[in-house]
């Protein structure tokens, strides 16, 4: 049993890095818009399917396909924000919430119409990944997995630096703290939220591609991803990038180890993750590090 632990840690880290990426985008949008964007996971799904079209159907390389997918989803994200969320931003809370459910459904239906309900995967026939082994064969890692983890970490670091030091990043944080005060200080709130949606959509698309490289694509993966991402955010505490990363590592490890070390089947994965989420929501709704109660309740 103990000899598979190093391998499990590697797998858990790969999954965690992808979860962190998707949760980072959701936690940013949640921080600013103050509602769960249920269509967020669907953006990731769309990213994965666009990548599939470019890479498998059109035969383009990884980088071109990735760019097409990310740019496409980003443009779509900006359009969605401009024409659906912006008009209802200051209305009652349920309106944007149900709206985002509607967007999720439409995106899912588009994918279902174009690609059908069958499972797709991103490997071209004969496209075998190089395997690397370490420490007397206790750890095997493929080149694709190395690519996944490096891309995710690079993107997250880039996001952190952007939010912390760039002018737009500071504007995003200001709007996330208080829209009205930010507007008084001369920040263009509409433009900032547009940029935020662009960044969120790009992150979602990237996460979707990475998940697609690791697993299969199905039209209903988006809704699951939204709830996974939310589980991650709740775990780490809402609205903070650091929380998303820590939450992702915890969920990744719980998922990998509960399935790797016990006799649970892979199909029980959802049961493990959502069971954990449920217990968390019951006993620690403000994240495992406590978090301030008012901070969340004022949302």
């Amino acid at each position: 049993m103990s000899e598979i632990i190093p391998q499990l840690i590697v797998i858990a880290l790969i999954i965690s890095s992808v979860y962190a990426l998707i949760a980072a985008g959701l936690t940013l949008t949640f921080g600013v818009l103050e509602f769960v964007h249920f269509g967020y996971g669907e953006m990731a799904m769309l990213g994965a399917y666009l990548f599939y079209t470019a890479h498998i159907s059109l035969g383009l390389g990884y980088i071109e396909s990735g760019l097409i997918s990310i740019v496409g989803v980003t443009i779509l994200g900006i359009i969605i924000e401009k024409f659906t969320f912006r008009p209802v931003r200051d209305r009652q809370v349920f309106i944007p919430l149900v709206l985002s459910i509607g967007i999720a459904i439409i995106l899912q239906s588009i994918v279902l119409i174009i690609y059908g309900g069958t499972t797709k995967n991103l490997y071209v026939a004969g496209d075998v990944a190089t395997k690397f082994t370490f420490f007397n064969d206790t750890i095997t890692i493929t080149s694709i997995q190395i690519f996944i983890i490096l891309t995710a970490i690079t993107a997250l670091c880039g996001l952190c630096i952007f939010l912390k030091y760039s002018k737009t990043g500071k504007a995003i944080r200001a709007v996330s703290d208080d829209k009205e005060v930010a507007a008084i200080m001369g920040i263009n709130v509409d433009r900032t939220i547009s940029i935020l949606f662009a960044i969120g959509s790009a992150l979602a698309a990237l996460a979707g591609i990475l998940i697609g490289l690791d697993r299969n694509l199905t039209p209903n993966m988006g809704m699951l991803l939204t709830v996974y991402a939310f589980a991650v955010i709740v775990l780490g505490g809402v609205g903070k990038l650091k929380g998303a990363i820590i939450g992702a590592i915890i969920i990744g490890f719980i998922e990998t180890f509960s399935l790797g070390l016990t006799s649970l089947k892979a199909s029980s994965k959802e049961l493990v993750i959502f069971g954990t989420l449920m217990l968390l929501l019951i006993f620690k709704p403000y994240g495992i590090f406590g978090g301030k109660k008012d901070e969340i309740e004022s949302r």
């Binding site: 149900v98 709206l99 459910i101 994918v111 279902l112 119409i113």
Partner: peptide, 24 residues
């Protein structure tokens, strides 16, 4: 069947969005 399921889903999604925008 796949397209039918997709169109059906799409109709519901569109209805949700239109109602939220114009008649919440």
């Amino acid at each position: 069947p796949d397209i039918l399921a997709g169109v059906r889903l799409g109709i519901y999604g569109l209805i949700l969005i239109l109602f939220m925008l114009f008649k919440p």
